[in-house]
Lab assay of single mutants.
Amino acid sequence: MQRVNMIMAESPGLITICLLGYLLSAECTVFLDHENANKILNRPKRYNSGKLEEFVQGNLERECMEEKCSFEEAREVFENTERTTEFWKQYVDGDQCESNPCLNGGSCKDDINSYECWCPFGFEGKNCELDVTCNIKNGRCEQFCKNSADNKVVCSCTEGYRLAENQKSCEPAVPFPCGRVSVSQTSKLTRAETVFPDVDYVNSTEAETILDNITQSTQSFNDFTRVVGGEDAKPGQFPWQVVLNGKVDAFCGGSIVNEKWIVTAAHCVETGVKITVVAGEHNIEETEHTEQKRNVIRIIPHHNYNAAINKYNHDIALLELDEPLVLNSYVTPICIADKEYTNIFLKFGSGYVSGWGRVFHKGRSALVLQYLRVPLVDRATCLRSTKFTIYNNMFCAGFHEGGRDSCQGDSGGPHVTEVEGTSFLTGIISWGEECAMKGKYGIYTKVSRYVNWIKEKTKLT
């Protein structure tokens, strides 16, 4: 034993070699072989497995989906700052455009905790909710729209109204504003409101030439003092309507412009014939205590009207009353817009006519005020429907199939267009061939041609 100890002390290297040989010859039971080890760690190889990531292109799944990435790591994937920024906006807080917040056709661009709407022409605001041009839906104005110097929408209202708090709607500024039905039992019968379409306001006024200088022999019209197929109006439903009495009662109609003036057809009036105007009328054979009678003290036909040349060209006249009318729910003026808007309103496509005229061709006159909704007829169809001249200051309205029309005794009465609950004068009943005849239409004086003249002559002093 002493000898062994001496050998170990003198030859430590020998001992180490012996131990190493023993270990190498022993069977290893701690580690699995290569094949079995792979069965336990069965993990798919990654895209760049075996390579240094710093030297390969980034992978979106590896960089940002398996674990949260930084902007720089995302930049490695896209290799483009702009594309990385677009991805980053949604990656950080989701897609803010998912709810489609942009209105009126706006395009949404996502941002971090926010979004941006790219608005089409005519709109602005956070969600493109603000109209900035009158060309689109009248700028959301209830009545009139004008573009300011910086191309912003400025709404306005006709006389007797003021802008509401929203700067879009119009509200009454006087007790009985024009064009409004205020009798409670008839307010439910107000005709369907007309909503502004998209309009090209630059070209809204037709490029028409008034044929002022045409000389033409007097034409022989049949029954051209021209509501057939209409309905009984309720008291106060058309408070701007008046009836004219002269040699015979209810020979023509008219509309209240203001307390002192009536507008009617020029062919209705004769110099030297006494005319009485009755406002607030409903049943011409009954006294309903809503009527107001006034005498006409002055007749002003349009300066281009000449019955000797043509009885229905420039067929418009103004009547001055001896005493002002007292405005109330049964006696209310009709609204008159400017030339541009009167023309736009007419193009809405349908209007209402009213009167006490004959209820059928050569038949009896109506006792109760009649009204009828009539569609506008395109000019080409209008011209083809008659052998008589249709001037540019006239328009056609009615039904091709016949059966409904204005008729004798309705002449001078109103053709009105309702705009968001307020009625505007767009025409004056003038003439036609018979009444409600198939293929024939009622012919009306186009008020847009005469609004400046009306307003100039009827100013209240």
Rank of each mutant, 00 (worst) to 15 (best):
Q2M: 13
Q2P: 10
N5K: 13
N5P: 09
I7H: 13
I7D: 03
E10K: 11
E10N: 11
E10Q: 07
G13K: 13
L14N: 01
T16V: 07
T16S: 03
I17A: 03
C18G: 05
C18R: 01
C18D: 01
L20T: 01
G21M: 10
L23E: 02
L24N: 01
T29K: 06
T29D: 12
F31Y: 15
L32V: 11
D33I: 06
D33T: 06
H34Y: 09
E35I: 04
N36Y: 03
N36P: 12
N38Q: 12
N38R: 08
I40T: 15
N42H: 08
N42G: 05
R43L: 08
P44C: 12
P44E: 10
K45R: 12
R46M: 13
R46H: 02
R46D: 07
R46G: 10
Y47G: 11
N48D: 15
S49H: 09
E53P: 12
E53M: 06
E54T: 06
Q57C: 06
E61D: 09
E67C: 06
K68D: 15
F71C: 15
F71Q: 15
E72P: 15
R75W: 05
E76K: 12
E76N: 15
V77G: 15
F78T: 02
E79V: 09
E79N: 13
N80S: 11
T81D: 11
T81R: 14
E82R: 11
E82V: 15
E82A: 12
R83T: 11
T84F: 07
T85G: 11
F87H: 15
F87W: 10
F87M: 15
Q90G: 09
D93G: 14
C97V: 03
S99L: 12
N100L: 09
P101E: 08
C102T: 01
L103M: 09
N104T: 04
G105E: 08
S107W: 05
C108E: 00
K109A: 07
D110F: 14
S114H: 14
S114D: 13
E116W: 12
C117L: 01
C119N: 04
P120M: 07
F121I: 04
G125R: 06
C128K: 04
E129C: 06
L130Y: 09
D131H: 04
C134Q: 02
N135Q: 12
I136F: 11
I136L: 08
I136D: 09
K137G: 15
K137Y: 10
R140M: 05
R140L: 14
C141F: 00
E142K: 06
Q143Y: 01
F144K: 01
N147M: 10
N147A: 09
S148M: 09
S148A: 09
S148P: 08
D150L: 09
N151F: 05
V153W: 09
S156L: 07
C157F: 00
C157N: 00
T158C: 04
L163Y: 00
N166W: 01
N166M: 02
Q167E: 05
K168E: 09
E171M: 09
E171F: 09
P172A: 08
P172M: 04
P172V: 07
A173Q: 05
A173L: 12
P175L: 10
P175A: 10
P177T: 04
P177L: 01
G179R: 01
R180V: 04
V181M: 11
S182L: 03
S182R: 06
S182M: 10
V183N: 07
S184C: 07
Q185H: 08
S187L: 06
S187W: 06
T190D: 09
E193L: 12
T194I: 11
V195I: 07
V195F: 04
F196D: 11
P197I: 04
P197F: 08
P197E: 04
D198C: 14
V199A: 04
D200K: 10
Y201G: 07
V202H: 08
S204Y: 08
S204K: 10
S204M: 13
T209G: 10
T209C: 14
L211G: 10
N213C: 07
I214V: 12
Q216L: 10
Q216G: 04
Q219S: 03
D223Y: 04
F224C: 06
F224P: 10
G229E: 10
G230N: 09
E231G: 09
K234G: 10
P235L: 13
P235Q: 06
P235Y: 09
G236A: 08
Q237E: 04
F238M: 11
G246D: 08
K247P: 11
V248D: 07
D249N: 05
F251S: 07
C252V: 00
S255G: 06
I256G: 00
W261S: 01
I262N: 00
V263I: 12
V263L: 11
T264R: 01
A266F: 02
A266N: 02
T271C: 04
G272Q: 06
G272K: 09
V273G: 07
I275S: 02
I275Q: 02
T276G: 05
V277G: 00
V278Q: 04
E281Q: 12
N283V: 05
E285K: 07
K293G: 03
N295C: 03
N295M: 07
V296I: 07
I297Y: 04
I297W: 03
I299T: 13
I300V: 12
H302G: 01
N306Q: 09
A308G: 12
K311C: 04
K311R: 12
N313C: 11
A317T: 02
L318G: 01
L319C: 11
L319T: 01
E320W: 01
D322P: 00
V326R: 08
N328L: 00
V331Q: 00
T332Y: 07
T332V: 14
P333E: 02
I334R: 00
I334D: 00
C335F: 00
I336S: 01
A337Y: 01
A337H: 00
D338T: 12
D338P: 11
K339D: 14
K339N: 10
T342G: 07
N343W: 02
F345R: 01
F345S: 01
K347T: 14
F348N: 14
G349N: 03
S350D: 06
S350H: 11
S350T: 09
G351C: 05
V353W: 03
V353A: 08
V353R: 15
G355P: 04
G355N: 10
K362P: 07
G363Q: 07
S365I: 14
L367V: 10
L367C: 08
V368Y: 14
V368I: 15
L369S: 15
L372C: 14
R373W: 05
V374W: 15
V377S: 04
V377T: 14
D378L: 04
A380T: 09
A380Y: 10
T381Y: 09
C382A: 02
C382V: 03
R384V: 13
S385Q: 13
K387I: 07
F388P: 14
T389W: 14
T389E: 15
Y391M: 08
M394H: 15
F395P: 02
F395N: 00
C396H: 02
A397R: 02
A397W: 02
F399E: 15
H400Q: 07
E401H: 13
E401F: 11
G403E: 11
D405Y: 14
S406Y: 11
C407W: 14
C407T: 05
C407Y: 07
C407L: 12
Q408G: 10
G409P: 13
D410W: 15
G412A: 14
P414D: 04
H415P: 02
V416E: 03
V419K: 10
V419R: 13
T426R: 00
G427F: 00
I429E: 11
S430E: 04
W431K: 06
W431S: 10
E434H: 15
C435T: 06
C435W: 02
C435H: 05
M437F: 06
K438L: 12
K438W: 14
K438I: 03
G439H: 08
G439V: 03
G439A: 08
K440C: 13
G442C: 13
G442Y: 13
I443S: 04
T445Q: 04
T445F: 04
V447F: 01
S448R: 02
S448E: 14
Y450C: 01
V451S: 14
V451D: 02
N452G: 15
I454L: 13
K455W: 05
T461Y: 14
